[in-house]
Design a protein around this nucleic acid. Structure first.
Lengths: 106, 106
DNA sequence: AGTATATGCAACCAATTGGTTTCTCAAATA
DNA sequence: TATTTGAGAAACCAATTGGTTGCATATACT
């Protein structure tokens, strides 16, 4: 099962979980209280997040605290870099249109 | 079918397509040449990208040029902002650990 | 010791996904 | 006009997904 960060953040519930534990580690039960799904469903989400290392477990007695590995989020940021260059350099729609029509007629 | 940008970029082929047409609009056939999948499969990816407005069509005779709407990528960037604050303010792992353990004992 | 609680895991299920093949249609070309 | 070419749509398929219920296990509490 090839888990990557992009697949992990595709699910809205998973994104919500990420936002929830970004600043403070939480247990599966506590997280589940925020959603309309079972604790087991949350557990499955956490497993996926763990597999792609977006989240880290920390056992505390019988409780397991999950916390976001915020560094891993940089992977997404890094992928965005190539496009950030485009939108920051003000390559707007008109520029694109011109360059493509120029390339049509070859 | 609720299409959002995050679901769109979850698929690696779709991310590759996005990278491919970022700087220059391309036709489905031209795009398909870069992958080991059929033109129709590419077409389906393009439909998904179009549905969430990551991509724009531009008819040119019987050809349809697809081009990235790079502005839409900012949606992802915006979502990342909340986490960027965390990692830029050097809330590193140790900080997290301390804050959570502090909250355990209540 | 006995019970309650926190969690993970497995089996199952319906819906979705990413791909295929086949078909149709419109535009370009001979 | 007839044929080739570029593209979308539909039907189909196997694999994956996101959820469920039920079970097993370890820790905490009485």
């Amino acid at each position: 099962m090839r888990r990557d960060v992009f697949q992990a953040i595709a699910d809205p519930t998973r994104r919500a979980i990420i936002g929830l534990i970004a600043l403070q580690a939480m247990t599966p039960n506590a997280i589940a209280e925020h959603f309309d799904i079972t604790r087991q469903a949350v557990s499955k989400h956490l497993r996926i997040l763990t597999e792609c290392e977006l989240v880290k477990q920390e056992q505390q007695g019988r409780e397991i605290y999950y916390q976001l590995q915020v560094n891993k989020m940089k992977a997404i940021d890094k992928w965005l870099d190539q496009f950030r260059k485009i939108w920051e350099n003000r390559f707007d729609q008109l520029d694109h249109l011109l360059s493509t029509t120029k390339n049509h007629k070859k």
